[in-house]
Simulated assay, not measured.
Amino acid sequence: MAEQPRQEGALLRFQAMPWVASGRALLASMVVLLVCDVIGGFIGVATGAETWGGAWGFDTESTVPLPVGAVQLVLAWLAARNVRPPVGRIAAVVLSAFCLLSVLAGLFDGDLIGTVASDGFLSWRVLWAVVVLLPVTAAVGLLAATRARQLRRRP
């Protein structure tokens, strides 16, 4: 009897895609997340919830602070670049953990709940956070975890 080829799962096919396997998807998604963070600050200013000076600082409630976003971008670059696999792997693991914490904080730290209470569920800030920022952050985290797993397998 002839053996049937082993069926690859969707996750394995996704990980094997050249764009994902090379780390370019991680870096591109992190750039998108950074742009979304900047837009989130503008939305906070436009709605009156943030000031120009605080919209991208450490006291912001509309997005992550831009210095944190810059660190995330550097971590994504290190993971995608893979000059030294241990450095890239560590950067990918840290970025993945950072994104997980960011999603959990975004959901449960009270800022989103407070925004819903004050602005309503269908406000720009709530919709931006729930429809854009949190899913993009989760995607970056999953791509970082995928990259860490790929770099673990390399010699």
Rank of each mutant, 00 (worst) to 15 (best):
A2W: 15
E3S: 14
Q4L: 14
Q7G: 06
E8H: 13
L11V: 14
L11F: 15
R13K: 14
Q15T: 07
A16I: 05
M17R: 15
W19T: 07
A21W: 12
S22N: 06
R24Q: 13
R24L: 10
L26W: 04
L33Q: 11
L34Q: 10
V35F: 11
D37F: 07
D37N: 15
D37Y: 07
I39W: 05
I39R: 05
G40Y: 10
F42M: 11
V45F: 09
V45N: 04
A46T: 06
T47V: 12
A49I: 10
T51D: 08
W52S: 12
G57P: 01
G57N: 08
G57V: 02
F58T: 11
F58A: 15
D59H: 09
T60E: 09
T63I: 04
T63C: 08
P67N: 08
P67G: 05
P67W: 11
V71F: 03
Q72M: 15
L73E: 05
A76C: 03
W77D: 03
N82Q: 06
N82I: 00
P85S: 10
P85G: 02
V87T: 03
A91I: 00
V94C: 00
L95K: 01
L95W: 01
S96Y: 01
F98A: 05
C99V: 03
C99A: 13
L104Q: 03
A105W: 06
F108L: 12
F108V: 06
F108R: 04
D109A: 12
G110D: 09
D111R: 14
D111V: 11
T115C: 05
A117P: 03
S118Y: 07
L122Y: 14
L122E: 09
W124A: 15
V126K: 06
V126D: 08
A129T: 15
V131T: 14
L133P: 00
L134I: 10
A138D: 12
V140P: 08
V140A: 09
G141I: 03
A144T: 01
A148Q: 02
A148S: 05
R154A: 08
